[in-house]
């Protein structure tokens, strides 16, 4: 079973000037197939926690293990390869590649994995159909709405068949209809393909749909609530 474990994770920004403890001893275990929301006020460390779990940032103290891999033991380039194979990211600002079409954006990570062209193309189309964008495949990000871009981002995150998808406030820039639509898609993928979703959010609509809610306050887990859907 693929698990994310953090033990006593501390992350300090600006250690030399005015130190800010973004994470102050986070112990957390996220199991395969969960649909978890990390919530908390601004500055409580949500994004930092996601970055540390995703290997974008390294903890100053404590251990992070993702699917049995010790994040801290890996070099920067190993981390890039690790993310490519095991982790899908969805960013608040979509962050698609502006010069590529929706289909090419989804294919891109599979290209980095050196998958054959035919397989890339089929999977990209399948995923874009799954997020309801079959008619927008050849559009560039600038020709898509925010909601559509974020759906492309979800399809891109899913493309390499990662173990975990980490989404940082995925609905922050979306209207309620697009948000609901995106959440439906993510919930369905979670249910049917058993993909583990972890997202940071302070959007109540998202929190309502989560099956587990981890609340961070001042860089610590203040509550951890598991509930049915």
């Amino acid at each position: 079973m693929k698990v994310i474990t953090t033990k006593g994770v501390v992350k300090v920004y600006n250690p030399d000037k005015i130190p800010v403890k973004a994470l102050n001893g986070v112990d957390l275990e996220i199991k395969e197939g969960e649909f978890t929301a990390i919530v908390g006020p601004s500055g409580s460390g949500k994004t930092t926690l996601l970055n540390v779990i995703g290997g974008l940032d390294r903890p100053d103290e404590g251990d992070v293990e993702v699917g049995g891999h010790d994040i801290d033991a890996m070099s920067d380039n190993d981390l890039i390869d690790f993310r490519k194979e095991h982790i899908g990211f969805v960013f608040q600002a979509y962050n698609l590649i502006p010069v590529l079409t929706a289909r090419e954006n989804v294919e891109f990570v599979m290209l980095l994995q050196n998958r054959p062209k035919k397989e890339r193309r089929e999977r990209a189309e399948e995923l874009l159909r799954a997020v309801g964008l079959e008619d927008k495949m050849d559009k560039r990000p600038s020709e898509l709405s925010g909601g559509q871009q974020q759906r492309v981002a979800v399809a891109r995150a899913l493309a390499p068949k990662p173990d975990f998808i980490l989404a940082d406030e995925p609905t922050a820039n979306l209207d309620s209809k697009s948000s609901a639509n995106l959440l439906d898609i993510m919930a369905e993928l979670n249910r049917e393909e058993k993909i583990t979703f972890v997202f940071s959010t302070h959007d109540q609509r998202v929190i309502d749909r989560a099956r587990r809610i981890v609340t961070l306050v001042d860089g610590k887990v203040s509550s951890d609530e598991v509930r049915g859907e």
Binding site: G54, N77, I80, R83, F89, I97, P98, V109, L112
Partner: peptide
């Protein structure tokens, strides 16, 4: 810069 950061975040290694 942001785009390059994103590319490395989603798995484009430094050589590429």
């Amino acid at each position: 810069i942001k785009e390059l950061g994103m590319l490395m975040a989603i798995g484009m290694n430094k050589l590429r």
